[in-house]
């Protein structure tokens, strides 16, 4: 049973990686298991300067999911490169750096900063954060802006660039095609869906930011549908994400057209979830008559 997958810049021994923002920089989860078993790791978003993020409450539970509006809190790209990247590099797994910004220029600068380390294998371009006032989703919901920021980042880096798409759009295929045309090496999809929850007792939104990004199993069918549609119109590979809890979910994403997957919200409920999925995946593939991960990619498209 081969779990290995080759993607631009990434030789993955298995297709499982923790999703950006749901695993910090790995330190806390390294207390639970040896991170070297992971296929790769996607770091929490980096911006040029440190960011405090949004006021609290920043999270709320929903049916089969959660809302979050953290607001890209991070210590800034220089500190991430100095302290967090070397820590993750000690596990000898490919590191993907998620990059964010308020302007195209900031995206370019953050991408450029990651040229100063040889320990990052790829960039994930975060044009889909719904929780910051400037940047993020404004680039991810307009194909022209998405194309511009992708081009700028591609110019600034030698690393492969995976563009993380927002599901908060009418035409996901149009977005995917726009960033492919701009030089994206791969796609990450999907980011969270913008949502809201109102607290009955206080008659106010639970999340201080009012809106938050919906994640978890509640959004999995949307992710599957979008990957399924996009896969048929682009030739670059897709890292799939959105509500993965079990190895069966991974197979479903592979069938829809993802070449690898990221596990997010599930880490909060079960800190061992990535490890458990990696251990279970060979059995699940075998159960459904696949002899490798590669064999399953896109096989659900009819």
């Amino acid at each position: 049973m081969s779990l290995a997958v080759e993607l631009p810049g990434l030789s993955l021994k298995n297709p499982i990686m923790p999703a950006s923002g749901c695993f910090g920089f790995g330190r806390e989860y390294s207390d639970f298991y040896d991170l070297s078993i992971l296929g790769a790791v996607i770091m929490k978003a980096a911006t040029m300067e440190s960011r405090f993020g949004n006021p609290t409450p920043r999270v709320a539970e929903t049916s089969a999911g959660m809302l979050n509006a953290i607001g890209l809190q991070n210590p800034g790209v220089k500190k991430i490169i100095a302290t967090e990247v070397p820590f993750l590099a000690s596990f000898s797994i490919p590191i993907i750096a998620n990059i964010a910004g308020s302007t195209i220029e900031e995206y370019r600068q953050v991408a450029k900063a990651f040229q100063h380390t040889d320990q990052v294998a790829a960039l994930e371009l975060n044009i889909s954060c719904p929780n910051v006032k400037e940047g993020g989703i404004q680039f991810g919901t307009d194909p022209f802006m998405a194309q511009k920021v992708t081009e700028a980042v591609k110019e600034a880096t030698n690393l492969p660039v995976y563009v993380k798409l927002s599901p908060n759009v009418a035409d996901i295929v149009g977005m995917a095609k726009a960033v492919e045309k701009a030089g994206a090496d791969g796609l990450s999809m999907i980011n969270t869906l913008t949502g809201m929850q109102i607290h009955l007792a206080t008659r106010k939104p639970v999340i201080a930011n009012k809106t938050g990004g919906l994640s978890g199993p509640a959004i999995k069918p949307i992710a599957i549908r979008m990957i399924y549609e996009v896969k048929q119109h682009v030739s670059i590979p897709i890292i799939g994400m959105g509500g993965i809890m079990h190895a069966e979910d991974v197979l479903e994403f592979l069938l829809a057209g993802a070449s690898a997957v990221a596990v997010g919200t599930a880490n909060f409920q079960n800190p061992y979830v990535c490890k458990e999925i990696i251990e279970q995946l060979p059995h699940t593939l075998m159960q459904y008559s696949f002899s490798s991960v590669k064999e399953a990619i896109g096989k659900g498209i009819v």
Partner: peptide, 16 residues
């Protein structure tokens, strides 16, 4: 505070 992971990874429950 409302928490996510409860172990320090998700940055949901910060205080200035």
């Amino acid at each position: 505070e409302r928490m996510g992971c409860g172990i320090g990874a998700c940055f949901a429950c910060v205080i200035p």
